[in-house]
Design a protein around this nucleic acid. Structure first.
Lengths: 353, 353
DNA sequence: TGTTAGCACTCATCTGCAGAGAGTGCTAAC
DNA sequence: GTTAGCACTCTCTGCAGATGAGTGCTAACA
């Protein structure tokens, strides 16, 4: 956006004030609190210009002015200053990395923390099966005719599924197959596992074709279906803290929207690879999101993207603060997950790419 | 409660009308709509009596009257008629039993359905590990020094946990231990498993005492910790449908309360063994629940109690309808779970007690 | 003795209106 | 280019009066 230095200063002040107070900003307040070297009359002229440029909006003639969505865009891209987090918040986030939570517990903790610190709704897309690499596959006989498929991946996630098997298959048989599969596919991405490609199993495959079909299906399901459940959401109630939702309908609409995890699962999984992405007022075209802003940040471990952090709130959002928190949480998750991986791969630490 | 037939009729009419409209009921309306054989003046006298007995409350002098918590108690215990569900609702609940969902998916479906049909918030306490019986325990080697403990129970629930093991333990070793443990403890309740009691493992226990400690702890954790996560909650947003929550503070307080699953986990697990339990306005002494009613129903499979269904909403609740729905859902769950058990115990169907 | 009609009274809610306050645009002077 | 001053606009708040649903009480009736 092509703005002279003074206009930039004024716009930044307006956004800062409006984000803090939720009240339209008038020329008088602006002159007293932020731009003391200019009179309110001058500011009125400048503000009139900014309005013409589509950066400010007047709710009605005798109210102050409010930033437009475009103004927030400019703010995020050009005006915002990276703030350093208060010591207390840094400490809290640091503690995430030090606790030795199970992966799932860790994700919940991260989401809770983000929602507590930001006062918005936080989401975490847990390490995704489709990005995980197989470490071990184990078939466990349950009863005659059914077995449990246990998948262990490098992200410390375990998924299991029950499948039917031919009645005549014995425990030894299953163990043998497990061993072959593990040897053949360890290190592969789950999505790349193609049982038909395993020459070693040619004989078995002919004999037990329906079993291998079931097994393939179980692998696919683990990737697709399990992931859907891996979107963690915390602090939807925080919405009540923000005056724009002191209105039953808006609050209800928001909470209703948040009940369907599917939309956000899709949104977040699209952005796993992006370090930071800020969508203001449904810029992505989703009409239901037009009153909300969504900030997401992919997190990675050992240079491999794992999942996504997200925060959703009103367009009038404290972008700088939220982004600061998300960066820090991302770093903590990284440390924690790397430690967990290290713990379980004591002999493979060098091989992480 | 000692009421003559006429007072009972009047009280029932008042509760019915108030539940339906959420408006204080006046003598005039009552006479026109429900008790056409009496004049409003007579009803005023009767209502005055009922008020003196603590069954009705006047919000202010010139308003109609509203049932007291005691009145709801009398209504539920003595006045309420068991309504038969509309065909559409029966059908929907029936479908639960027919789908072949995984246990967890089934619980989610049940909760969703209950919240949709009742328009309140529904909870389901999934089959509880502490009540489950072991079918199989399997130790799977992950890396040198760590193993996965897989527990399979008769409620088709599987839990897994990673433990450290002595570095020298081999896959064969783990398999041997698994086989012994399964043989020894299959059919026992998880809480009854005491590794120290297994004479068969005396030698191993001496050699690998720290391993057995870890294993014991893993078993305990599976029971305690896993259960906490097994409270499913659906339809908290439904609260907005009810006029008593068209008020930011109340709605927020409710949603905030519902965020902590712990309280309801405790409440529901206490009631697993009871067929039906109705708590009106915090009768159980929980001050936070004083504006809410909670209805729970234990569900059972093959005569063993499994978990609990619950519905929470304002005290002004359609008790008859909710209870009807919960009964029906309980029956469907029973069918579905029994089928799942049958499917996985094809050779043990006669043994279910 | 139980039931009912009538009447005065109460109280929450709605409507319209006036005044306060915050902010704007425009003009003229610096 | 900047600023002071002024008339104007629009929202918000509080208040007074009207409205209406409902009550309690009394007296008459079956």
């Amino acid at each position: 956006m092509d703005l002279n230095e003074r206009k930039r200063r004024i716009l930044k002040a307006i956004v800062d004030d409006y984000v803090a107070t939720a009240q339209p900003v008038g020329s008088r307040t602006l002159s007293r609190r932020y731009v003391q070297d200019l009179s309110s009359a001058t500011l009125r002229n400048e503000m009139s210009d900014l309005e013409e440029m589509g950066l400010l909006i007047q709710p009605h003639t005798s109210a102050g002015r409010v930033p437009s969505n475009l103004a927030y865009r400019v703010y995020v891209d050009e005006l915002m200053e990276g703030t350093s987090l208060p010591e207390q918040e840094r400490r809290a986030i640091q503690d995430l990395a030090d606790g030795s939570w199970e992966t799932e517990e860790l994700m919940h903790q991260a989401a809770s923390l983000m929602s507590d610190l930001t006062h918005y709704t936080a989401m975490v897309l847990a390490p995704q099966m489709r990005r995980a690499r197989l470490r071990r596959i184990q078939l466990v006989l349950l009863d005659r005719g059914s077995a449990l498929v246990v998948l262990v991946t490098d992200t410390a996630v375990v998924k299991d599924k029950i499948i039917r098997i031919p009645e005549e298959m014995t425990e030894e048989h299953l163990l043998a197959v497990s061993r072959i599969l593990t040897e053949r596919f360890a290190g592969h991405a789950l999505t790349d596992i193609n049982l038909a490609a395993a020459q070693e199993l040619r004989q078995e495959r002919n004999r037990y074709s329906s079993f291998f079909d079931e097994l393939s299906r179980a692998l696919e399901d683990s990737v697709v279906q399990a992931d859907q459940g891996d979107l963690i959401m915390e602090g939807t109630v925080n919405i009540f803290q923000h005056p724009e939702y002191w209105d039953m309908e808006r609050a209800r609409d928001f909470l209703q929207m948040m009940e369907s995890h599917e939309r956000f699962y899709r949104l977040m999984s699209k952005r796993t690879h992006r370090d930071l992405s800020v969508t203001i007022g449904g810029e992505n075209g989703d009409a239901d999101l037009k009153d909300y802003s969504v900030i997401t940040a992919g997190y990675r471990v050992a240079n491999r993207t794992m999942g996504t952090l997200g925060v959703i709130g009103p367009v009038r959002m404290d972008y700088a603060h939220v982004i600061g928190i998300m960066n820090q949480v991302g770093r903590s998750l990284n440390t924690a997950l790397a430690a967990a991986q290290g713990r379980k791969h004591p002999d493979k630490e060098q091989k992480n790419d």
